[in-house]
Design a protein around this nucleic acid. Structure first.
Lengths: 249, 249
DNA sequence: TTTCTTAGTGAGCGCTCGCTCGTTTTTCCG
DNA sequence: CGGAAAAACGAGCGAGCGCTCACTAAGAAA
């Protein structure tokens, strides 16, 4: 909702926008009331948490490091969360909410055409994970050390994305555009192709692989796998929809 | 070398075989000399390390838990390694060595045919990761918290596998069997398909997806992506080579 | 100005960590 | 056997963890 109203031209995935959403959701547990103080502080806390955790792991990140990196004191941190696990669940919750919100609202014109829809999901997911890379890496790498409730939420998030893909594949098979005999398995093989972009981001950066090149390659790869009748020879490069998630550069 | 001499019928990827190889490599730092004591003890230590680390993370696994789970005392553990990071590098080193050894020695008949070779790599990698699942998961999930030297080794391992795939793709393009314009990028998209089997093993187990089904699906997927002229309609199910890594059930 | 509220501080608490070392138990061979 | 060498033990160490709380600074209300 906060996300849907986002003006185009503003980055809906910017740190401070996401952190403002976190604040809204945790308004009664965060003890700082004034947004003009709370938003920048929480932004620095979350930013430091993502940076440090993605380097050494969340468990290995100490609150003293976090205090130093975010410019607050030990006690100051505890006016923004009541325990270290809470901090973790703030991040996970925001990612889960955002992913669900974005992927479940494809533009109307895209829904009609299974192949278009598949390409939209690929492009949207890759671009979203690019804009929120530290967040995605955090969820992926730390999921196993989450407390049970958060862990289940991470699994649900994974399952949801796969179900969305599977749904599109099924639609494509029904309308005769795709020819797949194991829809679920195919969907679960497309998923890791989306994840590779953020899990191994450093490798692609080193090689100079652009996000458009990557989206194009995955789309071509997926097209070949779903083996439709009308097989396009190439996916248009840089084809962006008008939707908000492409607002960032 | 220890691996190459393995008799067929014996599981070359069994815990105790791998741990015996670790002992050999660390003979001068392990203080227990007698193999009939050292092998079973180290096997229990490594086993407990993998189990506990894959559940909570290596960093969160304490030496007291490890002592309890392996049936040794705190002090007893330290006759097998001199520090916690050493224990980590024992595991990583063994995986790196084994992967390199196995994937770099394809059967002679397979080397000639690029498509066969690609299928062999897929089947071999998936079967190896199945037999050594906890080891592979450990390396994948803990890589970011390795000390720099070990971390580089993990990256090298990743790069090596990808290079092997890329090499086969290049060969296939040269011999006209494959038609790909971005060999490296295609290779780096095949890699996560191999990893998904062990990273998300629980999901596939829950769904009852057999290893043969998975190998077959990935092979078909890859075949479609490399878009050769002579396109086989289906990969033979359960086609095993005579090589040692298929000895386990 | 004075008072009251909110945001932020940091030394210190209880606890557990990785690791050590003097001691005890087990093994093995003459 | 007996006894020395090898292996295993586990209480204890200093360090550093997550977290607390008596406190101060600063802005708003009176």
């Amino acid at each position: 909702m906060g996300l849907a109203r986002q003006r185009s031209g503003t980055n809906a995935f910017a740190m401070d926008v996401l952190c403002a959403r976190i604040l809204e959701r945790h308004r009664d547990s965060v003890r700082v009331q004034k947004p003009h103080l709370a938003v920048p502080n929480l932004t620095r806390i979350i930013g430091a948490t993502l940076t440090l955790s993605n380097k050494h792991g969340f468990h290995a990140t100490t609150l003293r490091q976090l205090a130093e990196a975010s410019g607050l004191s030990m006690g100051g941190l505890y006016t923004y969360f009541d325990s270290k696990p809470t901090l973790l669940s703030m991040i996970l919750g925001e990612v889960a909410e955002t992913v669900a919100e974005v992927l479940n609202q494809p533009p109307a014109d895209v829904k009609q055409d299974a192949r278009k829809h598949l390409h939209w999901i690929i492009a949207t997911h890759v671009r979203m994970s690019e804009a929120m890379q530290p967040w995605f890496v955090f969820c992926f790498m730390e999921a196993k050390s989450f407390p049970p409730a958060e862990r289940q939420r991470a699994i649900d998030m994974e399952v949801m994305t796969e179900k969305i893909i599977a749904g599109v594949l099924k639609q494509g098979v029904a309308s005769g555009v795709f020819a797949i005999d194991q829809v679920t398995l195919t969907a679960s093989l497309i998923k890791p192709l989306l994840q590779d972009w953020y899990v191994k981001r450093a490798k692609y950066r080193r090689r100079g692989t652009s996000i458009e090149t990557y989206i194009n390659a995955v789309s071509t790869f997926a097209d070949a796998a779903v083996a439709g009748r009308t097989r396009p020879s190439r996916v248009a490069t840089g084809s962006r929809t008008k939707s908000r998630q492409t607002a960032h550069p």
